[in-house]
Amino acid sequence: MSPLRRRLLFGAPLAVAVAGGAGFYTILRRMQNDQYDPHALPSPLIGKRPPAFTLPGTGGGSGFSNTDLLAPPKPMLVNWFASWCAPCQEEAPMLQTLAASGITIWGIAYEDQPAALAAYLQKYGNPYTRLATDESGLTAINWGVYGVPETYFIDKTGIVRLRYAGALTDEVVKTQLNPLFEQYS
């Protein structure tokens, strides 16, 4: 190895460290300016239509596919849930209230068994206008679902405007969902 190449090689670790340091510096600055939040759960779907999927229904229902979401008559919600998920049970009354107030909610049951799902809907009520099941969980991966429950707001052109991870609360409905319904109705 020539002396120059040897020198360059020995400088490589420094170059890597400098690049890393510069990167961390930028990230920290952006965190200070509130431009970057490492703990946020961003959704790749915001501003887009949901990816292609066709999911079966349950208990004789027909299920739905992404084409059904292309142009809803009015803004609507898609709610991911599961019978085995405790926060979903807490969220159930809120969904009932929303459905009763005239909001269309479609549900997708994530990695669920038909029998358990039927029992869940029996016990906690069924606020969903249409219901599909994602038994394999593959559609959830395509949607970028982080965990259940998770709620997506879809406007009249079929574009996702909001993803909320976690159980919907009065606070979330008031500050995040209601303004969107007003804006896009």
Partner: peptide, 22 residues
């Protein structure tokens, strides 16, 4: 801001030692 202080310390320690190494 603690992060920036730490980053400066790391830059001196790690950068300085790798410079010496180079």
């Amino acid at each position: 801001d603690q992060g920036l202080f730490i980053l400066a310390l790391l830059a001196i320690t790690i950068g300085g030692s790798l410079l010496l190494f180079a």
